[in-house]
Design a protein around this nucleic acid. Sequence first.
DNA 1: CCACTGTTTTGAAATCTGTCAATCTAGAAG
DNA 2: CTTCTAGATTGACAGATTTCAAAACAGTGG
Lengths: 125, 125
Amino acid sequence: MSKLKTLPVLEPEQEATPCCEPLAEQSLSTADAIALAPAFKALGDPVRLQLMSQIASAEDGEVCVCDLTPGFDLSGPTISHHLKVLREAGLIEGERRGTWIYYRAVPTRLADLSRLLVSPVAATK
Amino acid sequence: MSKLKTLPVLEPEQEATPCCEPLAEQSLSTADAIALAPAFKALGDPVRLQLMSQIASAEDGEVCVCDLTPGFDLSGPTISHHLKVLREAGLIEGERRGTWIYYRAVPTRLADLSRLLVSPVAATK
DNA sequence: CCACTGTTTTGAAATCTGTCAATCTAGAAG
DNA sequence: CTTCTAGATTGACAGATTTCAAAACAGTGG
């Protein structure tokens, strides 16, 4: 049994990063689209996008949930839910230290998504 | 009256492009998050992501809907719906020529989203 | 003007999502 | 061991999303 009882909320939950050619370079396979869409979907909610930004732009590279929650007019469980979605999308990682849980961005994941959207040729600007 | 009767399906539907600093640069305002999330949401569906890719990677920079539809195991109306979502998100633009409608990507919009995800400093690779 | 084709719109059903209240778990501190 | 606090999980519900069939619309061509 791989799940004893302890190990509550901290795993990446997202395995391989199946990054691909930029969208405009070559047509995405169905499998790749299915693998990548959840990450964009996770960013497709205003609350999560703002959470993502606050985490990614944090001074020390990480933020305590306790500092995140008061910034929104939402209940704790709701914030917790959104963080879980971001976590399962491989966009953030959480670590418990004592009473508090800290989240930080996964820059490589963001970079992969970013690269997917641009065609390197279109370096117009 | 701004809507006479003709002008069926071709407007950008998305006005200003409220692009911002990269996520990791500075925390996104609520307003900006609300403005930007729909674009990611539009890309957050496997079918739309694949449609977007096929359109963006098209040889002539544009694709006829008639060439898009057969590639999916979905009804015409469903494809049309997804195209509308992408259109309303400002990611693609459509133009009717005779019987057919052609869609092309809006590269600046993709570039804006791309830039939002990366911190220029993190040019590690 | 009528029929045909390509595409969008409408309407409806099944499923998914965002949210909160209530409950549970992990660690800290008595 | 009991209590307290920070977060996560569960359960429930309103509202949104995906999908299709049917109908409407825009051009083309009799």
